[in-house]
Simulated assay, not measured.
Amino acid sequence: MTQVKLLGFWYSPFSHRVEWALKIKGVNYEYIEEDRDNKSLLLLQSNPIHKKVPVLIHNGKTICESMIILEYIDETFEGPSILPKDPYDRALARFWAKFLDNKVGAVVNTFLRKGEEQEKGKEEVCEMLKVLDNELKDNKKYFVGDKFGYADMAANLMGLWMGVFEEASGVVLATNEEFPNFCAWRDEYINCSQVKKYLPSRIDELLVFYQDRVRAQAPTSATLQK
Rank of each mutant, 00 (worst) to 15 (best):
I190Q: 14
S12M: 06
F209V: 04
M67E: 10
K196I: 07
K103H: 07
L42A: 12
P48L: 07
F148I: 15
N109I: 00
V172I: 15
L41N: 10
I82M: 04
K25H: 08
W20P: 10
L100T: 13
I69C: 11
K5M: 04
I49Q: 10
G145R: 02
G60Q: 04
Y88G: 03
E205T: 05
D86I: 10
V55M: 05
G145C: 11
N134W: 00
E177Q: 13
S40R: 00
P219A: 02
R36W: 00
Y150P: 06
K130R: 07
I82R: 02
F9M: 09
V195T: 13
Y72L: 03
F14C: 13
L199I: 01
P84L: 00
M153Q: 07
W96Q: 08
R202Q: 14
S81F: 05
D133S: 08
D138T: 03
K25E: 04
I49G: 06
A155H: 03
T175I: 07
H16Q: 15
Y142V: 12
V27T: 11
V4C: 13
D101Q: 06
N38T: 09
I190K: 14
L43H: 05
V164E: 02
A91W: 01
V214F: 11
D152I: 13
Y198K: 09
L136I: 09
E75M: 01
E30G: 10
